[in-house]
Each structure stands twice: as C-alpha cells, then as structure tokens.
Amino acid sequence: MRIKGISVFTKKRYKVRKSAVILAIFSLAMPAISNSAEDVPSNSYPHIPEPMVFDLVRPLGALKGELEANTLLQYDFAHDRTEANPEVEYTFADGYGIEFELPIDNTSEEGTSIAAYKISLQGTFNYPQSSQFIHGWQYSGEYFPDQNQYQNNALYLFGYRFNKRWSTLNMVGLRRTDLSSKGHFEGLFNSNLFYTLSPRLTMGLEINWKYKSNRPDQVLIIPQAHLKFTKHTALQFGAGMQRVLNRNFAHLAARLIFTF
C-alpha cells in the first residue's frame, strides 16, 4: 500500500518535515502495511480474529449455518467479582448472525445468579468487495431483572487485514443505558491489533473505552493470546489493566470456544 502525493524532494523545508512526520506516524500505527494481503483470495472476505472481551456474533462475513457456543470468564478486581458470559451464536444467512447470552455474576445476596438476558444481531455490508477490508453493524438489547432496566447498543464494525500476519478490528457506537427518562447515552469504542504467529496461535491487544458524559470514563487494556486446539475448539486468555473511577485495577479474562 503506497502513500500518494507526498514527495520528499520538495523545495520548502517545512514540507519535508511534515512528510517525515506523516510517514513516521503511518509506519508506527500500521505495521507492515506496505505488504499485500498474502494467502487471501481476492473474491473472499478477509479472515480477521475476534476480540476476546467485546465479542462478535461470529466473525464478519461468516457463512450460513455456522454455530458456536462460548463462555467468557472474567475476574473484575475493580468490583471484586467473578463474571461469566455463556452464549450461543448462529449465522442464519451469509454474513448475518444472532446471539443469545446470559451474563452471570456472584454479587447478589443469594450467590451466583443471572445478571441479565441479552440478544444481539449482526450483519455484514457487501460493499465494497475486498480481500482486505470488511465492515458491518451490530445491535444488542439487554434486560437487567434486578433493576428492571433495558440497555441497547448500536455499533459500526470495520476490519482490515494488512498482510498474512497483521490485522485490525474496530468498533464504534452508542449505548442507551435505559429506555426511561433516567437513562443516558454512552460512547463505546473497541480497537484491536492482531499478529498471527501460526494457524494455531494469534497474539492480540484489545482496548475497550466507554465514554460517559460528565462522569469518569472506563477503559480496559488487555493483551491476549488466541490458541486453536482443534478445528472446533479454541481458547482466548489475557491479563491487563482496567481504569474505573480514575483508579487502575488488574483484570483477568479467558474465553473458551466450541464451534459446530
């Protein structure tokens, strides 16, 4: 991939400096971007790994009939609790999927209980057709029985495969914390950089940022590893840092995945 319209053979010194800064930032932000997307057929969607914490409803561009069951386990040091998120995902048409999830935690007085009921829908945009770029959308609705509240998320998803090793997946959207007048909007941002070491091992860095107007933001930064044991089983795990109420806490997470 080339940067057009920038020349280092300019007569004005400030243009030379400007070009050098742009090139340096571009090189740092997109490793190995100059290489082509090797081993990716030109008539297919690019394969991009899924984030561990902010999960997709199957990868973008998934084929009809794919079925997955997985569980995310987290230890939240900020609130001193263990969380589990068992879920089932199914693609009912090429590029379109649905997910049912039951978030569980151990913070209730009665012990472990279902914290919410969640359903998500996801779609893939067919334009433009590219072997490197892919994008789509995701909507999720969540009901919290203890608070009798309904939460809604709407996200735009986009990913890019730089070459056979490096890829990125990003999400940006809005959350409405409740449908009543007491609810408010929050900004949701998720960014991931992946490096594929082998067909069975991928390293990643995931950043989740929740923007809250007039309140402290919440940020999670978590390096992770993705291990593929067999064609149908995989494990993602990682440890990182979460910032809550202007304080930093450790955070542990793992996701066990079964596909059918």
Rank of each mutant, 00 (worst) to 15 (best):
F9E: 11
F9V: 10
Y14K: 02
K15I: 05
S19L: 05
A20K: 00
I22R: 01
L28Y: 15
A29T: 02
N35P: 08
S36R: 03
E38H: 14
V40F: 01
P51L: 15
M52T: 05
L56M: 03
R58D: 14
P59H: 11
L60C: 03
L60K: 08
A62Q: 07
L67T: 02
E68N: 12
T71A: 01
L72H: 07
L73H: 05
H79K: 13
D80S: 14
D80Y: 12
A84E: 07
P86F: 06
F92C: 05
D94K: 05
D94N: 09
E99G: 03
F100M: 14
E101D: 12
L102V: 12
P103L: 08
P103D: 05
N106T: 03
T107N: 01
E110S: 15
S113L: 02
A116P: 06
I119D: 08
S120I: 13
Q122M: 04
G123N: 12
G123T: 13
T124E: 07
Y127T: 10
Q129G: 00
Q129P: 04
Q132T: 07
H135N: 13
G136E: 08
Q138V: 15
Y139W: 03
E142P: 05
F144Y: 08
Q147S: 02
N152D: 14
N152T: 10
Y156W: 01
L157H: 07
G159E: 03
F162H: 11
F162E: 13
N163T: 14
K164Q: 15
R165Y: 01
T168P: 09
N170P: 01
G173D: 04
L174I: 01
L179V: 07
F185M: 02
F194P: 03
T196A: 09
T196Y: 00
S198D: 13
P199K: 04
L201D: 09
T202P: 00
T202G: 03
K210V: 15
S213G: 09
P216C: 00
D217E: 00
V219T: 05
P223N: 07
A225K: 00
T233S: 08
A234F: 07
G238K: 01
G240E: 06
Q242N: 02
A250L: 12
A250H: 10
A250K: 09
H251K: 11
F258P: 02
